[in-house]
Amino acid sequence: MSQPILHHYPLSPFAEKVRAILGFKGLRWTSVIIPMIMPKPDVTALTGGYRKTPLLQVGADIYCDTALIADVLERLAPTPTLYPAEAAGLTRIQAQWADSTLFWTAIAYSFQPAGLQSLFGNQPPEHMKAFMADRAAFRGHNAPRLRVPEAIGALRLYLEQLEAQLADGRPWLHGKATSLADFAVYHPLWYIRRQATGVAGILGEHRRVTAWLDRVEALGHGTSEKLESGEAVALAASSKPVSTEGEAFLDLHGLARGERVTVAPTDYGIDPVEGELVLSRPNEIAVRRVDERAGEVVVHFPRIGFQVQKVA
């Protein structure tokens, strides 16, 4: 496989999760900086409409959602593993909780006045207005919504629980070995600590959590080189997707390989991606599509959190 390309922007917490995993695995990777808000024409060329950040590109294969990206990076570099044998199932469960419940709690907590000042204080007012309008459309009616008082109470409780998880002196959340849970729990707290600095004092009340955050950050981001987004689209056009011929096909929708379908998130950013269904594994689905700029690409999604529908 060619060198992985991460499409991201510096302030994205989910992108920080993947950057930290790349550091943990010591991988060389290519960095493509994409816009924070729409329009994102190069992203659209690659994905067909999916707009969450980040994306991982390997040639003409495009991987969406950090849960799946983590599995792809595990395939690229099995050692060190994100899924240590003694806690492989538990780390996935805690990671899923962190990517949903903890993430939205951290976002609601950060968007109180002092946090917004840290996030947007140096930006012109129109920048914040455009960002908030973009995110309102992005979230729609499905994303969780917490008021600040509830977010403060929930985050304080979660931090106490994480402090207790680390109370026996373990270096990582599930013991002596780093796992995916560490990176999934890390990125919402990183957002508070490094971006919403005006409200980051709550983290300092939990010394074990703070020391653990330091250990995750110390893993770094690996070694990267820069590429323009248009060049990444051209690279996809000059590549071929990895063949899925001969792969076992898990039918959960009464659909056959090759049928025209849409795939969309079930929570927020629910823009559907239309294509030919070419892959259906227990944890992954993928569609083939053709774009006038990106050429033939295969866009991959995790099973959990996405729905597949046949095109009428």
Rank of each mutant, 00 (worst) to 15 (best):
P113S: 12
G269R: 04
L157V: 11
A232R: 00
A77L: 05
F138D: 10
L102Y: 09
L159K: 09
A151S: 04
L219T: 12
G246E: 01
A108H: 12
L68H: 08
V261M: 02
Y50I: 03
P35R: 10
D168V: 01
P41C: 09
A108E: 13
D65H: 02
L277V: 03
G169V: 01
A151Q: 03
I270Q: 14
R208L: 15
H253L: 06
D267I: 05
R194L: 11
V311S: 15
D168W: 02
Q165E: 14
P4D: 02
Y9G: 10
A167L: 08
R293E: 14
I69T: 06
G220I: 04
V58T: 03
L213I: 04
G115C: 07
E160R: 13
G204M: 06
S229A: 11
G230P: 04
K40C: 09
A137S: 14
V58A: 03
T79N: 15
P41I: 07
L155C: 01
I62N: 00
V43Q: 09
L162M: 13
A136M: 11
E150D: 13
L146V: 07
E160D: 13
V273P: 09
L189V: 07
A167E: 14
L46E: 11
V32L: 11
N142R: 13
D291P: 02
A87T: 13
D291M: 02
G115A: 05
R293F: 09
Y109Q: 08
P54M: 01
D182K: 00
L157N: 14
R51M: 11
H221F: 14
G204N: 12
F24H: 03
G275L: 05
T53H: 10
P171N: 07
